[in-house]
Amino acid sequence: MKPREISVTVNAKHYRSEVPPRLTLLDYLREVLGLTGTHAGCEHGVCGACSVIFDGQPIRSCLMFAIQADGHEVETVEGLAGADGGLSPLQDAFWEAHALQCGYCTPGMLMASHALLRANPDPTEDEIKEAIGGNLCRCTGYQQIVEAVRLAAKRMREADPEAGPEGNKDRVDE
């Protein structure tokens, strides 16, 4: 099928591209935009290695076609660092806690955790596990990942005690 033009915002940068309809969002990010931080693990929606944030919510980029992202916003691991290239508190906590080994699932883990902390600055352990429950890691046994997310949350709260959930106005607390 003939390529179609799309316009997508990725990490606050606007891109216009021609894509065949069947190109997945994952392949678009990697092969067209060269943003290879997002990884393919299973390409059938189970492992979470391809997790990105789409319109503010974490999703699997292997389960969307790029053409569906036309007019939408995507955040990837490349967008986590500050403008100066400095690490985000979450990234830094992953480093500090050695929350990775081979690094392959790491971008997906970071994006899932990033979305969690944005919505919920003080997650319980169960909430952390729920947030990354669909992201498989074969190296770590998850121990240091959970520890890193906890550490990041703590440091972010200490740095900004006023911070509350954002981008999650419809969240209901019971």
Binding site: G45, G48, S51, F54, Q57, P58, I59, R60, L63, M64, A112, E130, A131, G133, G134, D170, R171, V172
Partner: peptide, 28 residues
């Protein structure tokens, strides 16, 4: 899953939604 209306009117659905896939698949 997050809707108070669903919880109030169809609590069984609200309960079941938590079993559906993972947060990332429920977002889509």
């Amino acid at each position: 899953e997050r809707s108070p209306e669903v919880r109030a009117k169809a609590p069984l659905l609200a309960k079941a939604l938590r079993f559906v896939g993972h947060p990332q698949t429920r977002n889509r």
